[in-house]
Write a protein that binds this DNA or RNA. Structure first.
Length: 642
RNA sequence: GGCGGCUUAGCUCAGUUGGUUAGAGCAACGGAAUCAUAAUCCGUGAGUCCCCGGUUCGAGUCCGGGAGCCGCUACCA
């Protein structure tokens, strides 16, 4: 950003994905940041969009009997509709299939190719026809596909590579000298850790024969570019890179690339080196937020616990949903989403504290003062705490915004709301009304209304609809325009005589959901001693999923070149299997032959050091000791354990 | 295994450059009030600040060791 502009981006979402709370969160966060900067009077540009190329789209299109572009056009609306429901105020929505994007991608590819930043290389690999995937020699499992364990064909394939390795030392130094470049700090460390190993070059192509739905390489029509040089470039193609230099210079470098922690490396390693090669300045900051967990579990399709934003909006309203996401997550850390937590916070913060405050103030002005805002007046000793906490909230919100600690800023705003409720109780305007002290009553209601005015302004970026309604109720109609920081920082801005209206149930209280169908992860009982505290309890059904068997070790040998691994041949009943075990430091190979041990028989095979392992030995371990599990007395191999 | 991080009240978390009786919200308990969305307000916490050791006049805050959890990574399986 020029020092005085703000350009914020979200990742572009894969168009074939179904929008979930994670997408919603990043986008709402970007929206809130954009709205705050607009409120601060900073010229703001907010970009989001969709990533539309790739195999999944191609495949879905085939299944639906339509073109890939039609497939994209069909699914992109899921995002566009959600953003509309969520009151997202992006300035631009880029789709990677748009000509304004593909043209730039191709131009960049050509330039980099001509400058030798992109080069072709041929190498032998292995191709699995059913999986449609290409593997390197080292990835194969006993010469077979690591995914489906079927045969693979040898293939000499040409690919194009971006000379990423050339920028490794530059990147390390850049990150070290720009502490704000990757945030939060632990993600910066993670990237530096990643960069301690040699960085390879980046494969940026796929042969058209395998992936047709992509942007064609301008120097080789048999290839399309693969994700990196397509998706990441959206951040600059959308703001006129190479086309409208004035516009580009206005917004670039971006102030924030907001991302989830799952795409850290692509944004902190691939993207910066790409920009460096292009000769484009670095973005100010790449900010990785955490994930929303569902209870204690990762959200996943297979667990069936994906939170659908639309359902939450339907049940509780957009503003409350936005507020919860912003208030509940400490930026950068993971947070837990449960409907119960949502309702608890909703009732406490929005219904009881803010909604109720608005209700008691507005109703009293309506009933006792004829719906007319009392005259402005100076705060006195009674108002001291109220004024100071409210104005502190204004300063806090600005500071917290800079530090990307929105949750803390919101907490300080709520502190001001609570101060107003305390103030109300202390000065008891209802008593003043009873004794007919209209002058003092007017003063009290004026100050309470001032607090509401400022709070509504501070929360407007988070809860645009509700806070607009509140401002209108206070007499700040469209005429008053948007709040400015200058007015929010001052006490006594409301003018007497404004028409105040009552507002019915700004945030109606909601009942707690019955501890629901999908209860937050089962809590381990703590008191009954049935399990070690903090360890999840599982049922017998889960235990039975693990097939444990006795096995006789037929042969054992050190794996060449490995420090810890032994390759074992074991007999499990009639079957003979190969198992790799990391026990070389504890057992001599020869001493194991003939022993009966316990193995997990239905473990997914894996490849270690290029050797397939079809199971796992069980061993007890404590510190530097390790002992294999075996059986008491003689029993044939293949016996069930359990 | 390596690197990094975390461990503070029942729960979610704050705790600045080491310094008076360690804080907030939620939950719980007791009370007040009744303008208001049965909302609000007041009061109530003997929390080994994970454990052990060290530096210091003084450590949640620094150093060493250990435990547990998490992230990335690896020849985990």
């Amino acid at each position: 950003m020029g020092a005085d502009t703000f350009y914020v981006t979200t990742p572009i979402y894969y168009v074939n994905d179904k929008p979930h709370i994670g997408h919603a969160y990043t986008t709402i966060l970007a929206d809130v940041l954009a709205r705050y900067h607009r409120l601060l009077g900073v010229p703001t540009h907010f970009l989001t969009g969709t990533d539309e190329h790739g195999q999944k789209v191609q495949r879905a299109a085939q299944e639906n009997g339509i073109t890939p572009q039609e497939q994209c056009d069909r699914t992109v609306v899921r995002f566009q509709e959600l953003w509309e429901r969520l009151e997202i105020t992006h300035d631009d929505f880029i789709r990677t299939t748009e000509p304004r994007h593909t043209a730039i991608v191709q131009r960049l590819l050509r330039e980099l190719y001509e400058r030798g930043e992109i080069y072709a290389a041929e190498y032998a690999g292995w191709y699995c026809v059913p999986c449609e995937r290409f593997f390197m020699e080292k990835d194969l499992v006993d010469g077979q596909c690591p995914e489906c364990h079927r045969g693979v064909e040898k293939l000499v394939e040409k690919s194009y590579f971006f000379r990423m390795s050339a920028y490794q030392s530059w990147l390390v130094e850049y990150i070290e000298t720009h502490p704000q470049f990757i945030q939060p700090e632990h993600r910066r460390q993670e990237t530096l850790g990643f960069l301690r190993q040699p960085l390879g070059d980046l494969c940026i192509s796929r042969p058209r024969s395998r992936l047709s739905w992509g942007i064609e390489l301008p120097f080789d029509a048999d290839y399309v570019t693969y994700v990196w040089f397509d998706a990441l470039v959206n951040y600059i193609s959308a703001i006129g890179y190479g086309v409208d230099e004035e516009r580009f210079a206005r917004w670039w470098p971006a102030s924030f690339h907001l991302i989830g922690k799952d795409i850290l490396t692509t944004h902190t390693v691939y993207w910066p080196t790409m920009l460096k090669a292009m000769g484009v300045p670095m973005p100010e900051s790449i900010f990785a937020h955490g994930w929303w967990l569902v209870g204690r579990d990762k959200m996943s399709k297979s667990l069936g616990n994906v939170v659908n934003p639309m359902q939450m909006i339907d049940a509780y309203g957009v503003d409350a949903f936005r507020y919860f996401l912003m208030a509940e997550m400490s930026l950068g850390q993971d947070a837990s989403f449960t409907e119960e937590a949502f309702v608890t916070r909703y009732n406490a913060d929005l219904a009881n504290d803010l909604g109720n405050l608005a209700s008691r103030v507005l109703k009293m002005i309506s009933r006792n003062l004829g719906g007319v805002m009392p005259a402005a007046c100076e705060p006195g000793a009674d108002e001291e705490e109220l004024v100071s906490l409210t104005l502190a909230a204004v300063r806090s919100m600005q500071d917290r915004l800079k530090a990307m600690q929105l949750d803390r800023g919101l907490a300080d705003v709520l502190a001001a709301v609570r101060a107003a409720n305390r103030y109300f109780d202390r000065v008891k305007p209802w008593s003043l009304a009873k004794v007919g002290d209209t002058e003092r009553l007017g003063q009290v209601l004026y100050h309470a209304a001032e607090c509401l005015r400022i709070v509504a302004g501070l929360l407007l970026p988070v809860m645009p609809a509700k806070m607009t309604a509140l401002r209108e109720a206070l007499g700040l109609g469209a005429v008053a325009g948007v709040p400015s920081l200058a007015r929010l920082s001052r006490w006594g801005v409301l003018t007497g005589g404004l028409a105040v209206s009552d507002i019915a149930g700004l945030f109606p209280r909601v009942e707690r959901p019955a501890p629901t169908a999908a209860p937050a992860a089962p809590r381990a009982p703590k008191a009954d001693g049935a399990s070690p505290a903090g360890v999840a309890v599982i049922g017998i059904d889960e235990v039975s999923r693990v097939h444990l068997r006795t096995a006789r070790i037929l042969a054992a040998e050190r794996l060449e070149g490995s420090e810890k691994l032994l390759k074992l041949s074991v007999e499990i009943g009639a079957e003979t299997r190969q198992i790799v075990a990391g026990i070389a430091a504890f057992y001599e190979a020869a001493a194991l032959v003939g022993r009966t041990v316990i193995v997990v028989a239905n473990l997914k095979p894996a490849t270690l050091f290029g050797v397939t392992s079809e199971g796992m030995l069980l061993a007890a371990r404590r510190g530097k000791r390790l002992n294999l599990l075996t059986v008491d007395g003689d029993i044939p191999s293949g016996a069930a354990v359990g």
